[in-house]
Simulated scan of single mutants.
Amino acid sequence: MALLSNEGEIQAPVVSSCLRPQGGECNFRECVIRVLERHGRSSATVAWSDATSCCYGEQHWRRCVAKKAGVCALSGQAIKRGHAVYRPKRVQPTPLNIEAMILATALEAVSLEEGF
């Protein structure tokens, strides 16, 4: 209900006080992402919620270099091979969002106080 505007139209979800761009090739554009904690520049704890596939209340993401092109799940920006990104930590069982990437610049720009 909180996503409905006064006119009854569905609005884009708020992600750490940033609106995710609509459209594009991002497989994760329907999810809600919150940056809960940053551990320096090497890792972060992220809350990930996607009603169509998975929900992780506290998921550990690590900073690495993108091995392939993609789309930032947080900002919708293009990711090129070689960009600094954060990815979910590989654990067992394998997270359903293991292919997701967040640009390091986008994650590091989010204020932890926003959206809480």
Rank of each mutant, 00 (worst) to 15 (best):
K67W: 03
V91C: 11
A84N: 01
C18R: 04
C31A: 03
F28L: 03
S42I: 11
L4C: 01
G76L: 06
C18L: 02
V65H: 05
E58W: 08
G76M: 07
L103Q: 14
E113P: 00
R81Y: 12
P93W: 14
F116Q: 14
F116C: 14
Q77G: 05
A66Q: 01
A109C: 03
L112F: 02
V110K: 06
A51W: 09
S75A: 05
L3T: 09
R38M: 02
A51D: 12
K80M: 10
E25W: 10
G76H: 07
R41N: 13
M101G: 02
C72N: 08
W48P: 01
E9V: 12
E7A: 07
Q77A: 08
L112Q: 02
E7M: 03
T105L: 07
P93H: 15
P88S: 15
D50Q: 00
Q11M: 09
S17G: 12
N6A: 02
A78D: 09
C64R: 10
C72A: 03
R41T: 13
E25G: 13
Q22D: 07
A73K: 04
R41G: 09
K89W: 15
R29N: 04
L19M: 02
L4Y: 02
C18Q: 07
L107G: 03
C72E: 06
C26R: 07
W48T: 00
A100S: 13
V14Q: 08
P93A: 15
N27H: 05
E99Y: 05
G70Q: 07
T52M: 10
Q11E: 12
V32C: 00
A12L: 12
C64V: 10
G8N: 07
